[in-house]
Simulated assay, not measured.
Amino acid sequence: MGQEVVKMIQSSDNLTLVRGISRSQYGKDVGEVAGIGPIGVTFTDSLDEVLAKDRPDVLVDFTVPDVVKKNMELAIDAGVRPVVGTSGLSEEEIQELQELAKKKGVGAIIAPNFAIGAVLMMVFAAKAAKYMPHVEIIEMHHDQKLDAPSGTAVKTAELIAQEREELKQGHPEEKETWEGARGAYKNGFRVHSVRLPGLVAHQEVLFGGSGQMLTLRHDSLNRESFMPGVKLAVEKVMELDRLVYGLENILDL
């Protein structure tokens, strides 16, 4: 994702890359690592140093769940606006970050998915759940993903739960002979995670009704699919003075 962000920034007239942050690529030219040739911008291994010396407007973070919250706190404290695609933050952690952003008056965006089509799928799923409350989510990702369920599935489930009262689905005497066979439980419905090589990011939301099925599906076939959403978030975060959770909140829907 970092490589695709670099390519997107370099192809944009209104964005300028000032620094890359990576321990493993320290000192290397960011463009060479991204596969587009040297661009005269190098990697450092210190976020504190970048925030203090380079003074960026926006920090784009696609790291890992263990460090993303601290990265966001450092950025917000420094008056730098984080745009985050790393998933795995808990509801409590997001609330804490929202309070910090509000206190500092600094814009921030956390997006479980930057693909516009995936955001539309989530919004449409929430609308459908009003009329077809029997639902299950199946999300499928590459086998190097660290969190399950995915941020997209979590956000989809949260949106559905806002529009649908809790409904216990399935047979009341249903039993799992293998633990976890029915997936994770959320407000009466189930969420299933698949991890396999060859996948990128895919999700189906299945709705069942009397004599009918509705399937909403989104497929990201490569990471370039996320870049229009990242660019939009980088631009829109400059207009915010609070933390926004979900790309749907900055789209005209």
Rank of each mutant, 00 (worst) to 15 (best):
R182N: 14
L97W: 07
E173A: 14
E176G: 06
L146A: 10
A129D: 01
E91R: 12
E136T: 12
A157M: 07
V123F: 07
Q169F: 01
K186L: 06
V154D: 01
A118R: 00
H134K: 12
Q144G: 10
G107Q: 08
P197V: 04
I160R: 00
L120H: 12
K155D: 03
A129V: 03
G151F: 05
E91A: 15
I160Y: 01
P112D: 03
A118E: 02
K104Y: 14
A148E: 07
Y131F: 15
V123Q: 09
H171D: 15
G198F: 06
E179I: 11
E165W: 01
V194Q: 10
I109H: 03
A126E: 08
H141C: 10
K127G: 03
L97A: 04
K168Q: 12
V123H: 08
E158L: 14
R164C: 04
Q169Y: 02
R182E: 11
P133G: 05
K145M: 13
L199E: 02
K104C: 11
E158Y: 01
D147A: 14
K186W: 13
R190D: 01
A125I: 00
K155C: 00
D143C: 02
P112M: 08
R164A: 04
L199T: 02
E139T: 09
G188Q: 03
F114D: 03
V135Y: 05
E173R: 13
P112R: 09
M122D: 13
Q162N: 11
K104D: 12
Y185M: 10
L159E: 08
T177V: 15
L89H: 05
L146D: 04
I116P: 00
G117H: 07
L100P: 07
T152N: 05
V106F: 10
R164T: 03
F189G: 00
V200R: 06
K102E: 15
T152L: 12
A184N: 06
